[in-house]
């Protein structure tokens, strides 16, 4: 029990530190690098929670593909370190901090109120072979959703190519 707690707190501190660095770094490239570390830490948390397959997918899809996409797009731009990383305006800044604090309070309050939401029965046992059960569920009960997701990815790929090829907006003279 002690080792489990030490592991959880170590990885939670890692995550919170790098998530804070992600949102507070002035240089967007540094933000992307810290976000990669946050994603790797989240994969570790998923592994702790006995979701080995999702942890692997997290490493491949987020820490690999999505972050390479972010860094490549950042390389396309000629970006200097921003002098003012956060948006201006005293009143609007105060309102933004206020609304962020309210929403953070709601999130933490919801987490606090959820103590005891799951009845403490005998501890539920996950099956020993989670990946196998996950794939059986994905290809039987959720087959149509899975296929729809494939169609959606195709549509998004075509749409992204169209959007990035627009020259001068919809009213451009041909």
């Amino acid at each position: 029990m002690l080792m489990e707690a030490i592991g959880f707190y170590a990885i939670a501190l890692f995550l919170i530190f790098f998530a804070f660095k992600t949102i507070s770094s002035a240089n967007p490239i540094h933000c992307a690098c810290y976000l990669v570390l946050t994603m790797i830490g989240l994969a570790g948390v998923f592994y702790q929670l006995e979701a080995q397959f999702i942890a692997g997918v997290q490493m491949i899809v987020y820490a690999g593909a999505v972050m390479v996409l972010f860094v490549m797009v950042l390389m396309l731009f000629d970006i200097k370190t921003e002098l003012r990383a956060f948006s201006r305006g005293l009143i609007s800044g105060f309102l933004k901090i206020f609304s962020a604090a309210i929403l953070a309070g709601f999130a933490l309050g919801a987490a606090t109120n959820s103590i005891g939401i799951v009845d403490e029965g005998p501890p539920k046992v996950m099956s020993t072979n989670v990946t196998r059960d996950l794939s059986i569920l994905l290809y039987t009960k959720y087959l149509y959703a899975f296929e729809a997701l494939g169609v959606m990815l195709l549509v998004v790929a075509v749409g992204v190519v169209c959007v990035s090829r627009i020259k001068g907006g919809t009213h451009a003279k041909h």
Binding site: A12, L15, I16, A19, F20, T22, I23, P28, C31, T38, V45, F70, V73, L74, E82, R84, A85, F86, S87, G93, K96, I97, S99, A100, L103, A104, A107, L108, A110, A111
Partner: peptide
């Protein structure tokens, strides 16, 4: 932990100027 990370993400969306961040 999830609530704290969500709040960080929300603060980034509300407060940053850069679209990619």
């Amino acid at each position: 932990l999830s609530a704290i990370l969500f709040s960080f993400g929300m603060i980034a969306v509300l407060m940053r100027k850069n679209v990619i961040v």
